[in-house]
Design a binder for these strands. Structure first.
Lengths: 196, 196
DNA sequence: AGTGTGCCAGTGGCTAGGCCACCTGTCCAC
DNA sequence: GTGGACAGGTGGCCTAGCCACTGGCACACT
């Protein structure tokens, strides 16, 4: 029943604009002054709309640079599963899941069991997948509670898309766990879900 | 380390203000014009800070009425999502809370805001308490979700008792955060709750 | 007395224009 | 080649103001 605020509907509009233009991670939106003129709103209002999109994790606004589209696996609708999570700023959910990932990695690194470590090694020539690696790490960590927390947060801070950076990160993670380096394993998880 | 935006630090400040004034659900904040004048910022910036607090669920802003404090108890939080903590092995709960602690410490270390760091320094001669230090760190981390997770787990992996080891650990934690060393801050949290 | 109606003061929403801080590329001196 | 100065473009923030919405009040009417 509450009237929608202009900058809120603007945020949706810009999100559609990103989609329509086929912009992907790293691409830049037009400058605020230009975009405001094109959309027929003041720069202040447009800026608030961009801020709203930033808390949703859709873009990243950098002083002196511009508004950058963030690479995100689109997962509309999952928010209804766990009401409350979707109201949280996306950066918080990402930080929380990364904290859980780090905890799982730490637990996996201190587990003396060795057989599972082998399954984590990269197949010859084939790139490491997040899903496969992570499944092995979770089993090695052997904590149902941490795994549940991971699942709860996964829908809202989803698995990262394959990329060169992800490959390197997964490699660091696997190496640290095989070495039994708990601190290194935890550190390797930071940034794994996307540059938060 | 990204410079913090004024309206973001303002949001934290106002959140503290709500706490300090003892405002509860339904209470009204001062009008924007007055609050902006008292805080020495423009009304536009203050309004953006209020918008940020609204997306965090801390307040609700109504056109023609004002900014109303929201009852945080009404938010079921994460605790209800993961029932049956008591049934989990204690080691798992401890590991999970330590993971959350590490995530909070990491977030605190990368927060460019400096004023809160000073409050974390040990009082002359008096031992550092876990409660006080941790309260400062959580504030610095500025993540409602991680704080909720911490609260949910705290009842089952309670705060540690004062000891020489705890003193050293808290010192390491504070030093790392003041240095802005995220990895060090996270590592300092391991073992803090006692090797249960 | 009860009821409805219009008004109005106070509130947030939004605009306009401007100055400043920040980033990045370029160009020049070394 | 390398490092520093510089300029253009960008977002951050401010001042000043008008508009839209809400809620309570006085006033009329029943």
């Amino acid at each position: 029943m509450r009237r929608e605020r202009l900058y809120e509907s603007l945020a949706s509009h810009i999100s559609d604009f990103i989609e329509a233009q086929g912009l992907v991670g790293g691409d830049r939106l037009p400058p605020e002054r230009q975009l405001a003129a094109e959309l027929g709103v003041s720069r202040a209002t447009l800026s608030r709309a961009l801020a709203a999109l930033e808390t949703r994790g859709r873009i990243e606004v950098r002083h002196g640079v511009g508004a950058l589209v963030r690479d995100t696996a689109a997962d509309p609708g999952v928010g209804t599963l766990l009401p409350g999570f979707d109201a949280r700023p996306r950066t918080e959910v990402v930080a929380a899941r990364e904290a859980v990932l780090a905890g799982i990695a730490r637990a996996a690194a201190v587990n003396p069991q060795t057989s599972l470590r082998l399954a984590m090694l990269a197949d010859d020539g084939r790139p490491r997948s997040f899903e496969h690696t992570w499944r092995c790490v979770r089993r090695l960590a052997d904590s149902a509670l941490l795994a549940d927390l991971d699942d709860s947060l996964a829908g809202h801070a989803p698995d990262p898309l394959p990329s060169a950076g992800l490959q390197a990160g997964l490699g660091d993670l696997a190496d640290a766990i095989i070495r039994g380096d708990a601190a290194g394993a935890a550190t390797a998880c930071v940034g794994l879900l996307g540059d938060g």
